[in-house]
């Protein structure tokens, strides 16, 4: 599995690992959505109302870019009551990105209300096996 939910006293700590930076961003997004509505992104929903949203993010560095990207997805998820399971990057470098996020508007209540995506402990790095990894802490 590309993401794992780890213990945190009050909030949720997610560890993400992927073979590329783009994949890391995509898996972190799916990991966040797994917290919001478990199992949704691994199922197929033929009747769901599709939602697409263009996003642009600019940040101080790559780790901040991931957090700011997730904050952007969280915002759209909350105002559209949607779960975003896919992302297509038109541009992604160390401090900026342009992408289209794709998902479903959902009827059911979210399982978890993420207040915010925090920068705490987030640090994107390549591990000894060459895979990209980071931790993300969500305020619940």
């Amino acid at each position: 599995m590309p993401f794992w939910i780890l213990p945190h006293t009050a909030d949720v700590r997610l560890r993400v690992e992927a073979s590329s930076v783009a994949e890391l961003f995509a898996e972190a997004m799916r990991g966040m959505m797994e917290i919001v509505l478990p199992g949704f992104c691994t199922q197929t929903f033929p009747h769901c109302r599709l939602v697409e949203q263009d996003v642009r993010v600019q940040s101080v560095d790559q780790s901040a870019l991931l957090i700011d990207f997730l904050s952007e997805v969280l915002y759209w998820s909350q105002v559209q009551h949607a779960v975003f399971c896919a992302v297509r990057f038109q541009q992604l470098d160390k401090v900026s990105l342009q992408a289209r996020i794709e998902g479903c508007e959902v009827e059911q209540a979210f399982e978890e209300d993420i207040k915010a995506v925090t920068y705490h402990e987030s640090f994107i790095r390549q591990n000894p096996s060459g895979r990209w990894e980071t931790v993300v802490v969500f305020d619940i």
Partner: peptide
Amino acid sequence: TDYIKTMLHSLDRYGIRLRDRE
């Protein structure tokens, strides 16, 4: 969320070094 991001961008300008971005 908005202001933590804003302040991350202005840290260098004020010469502030932090152990944790939060």
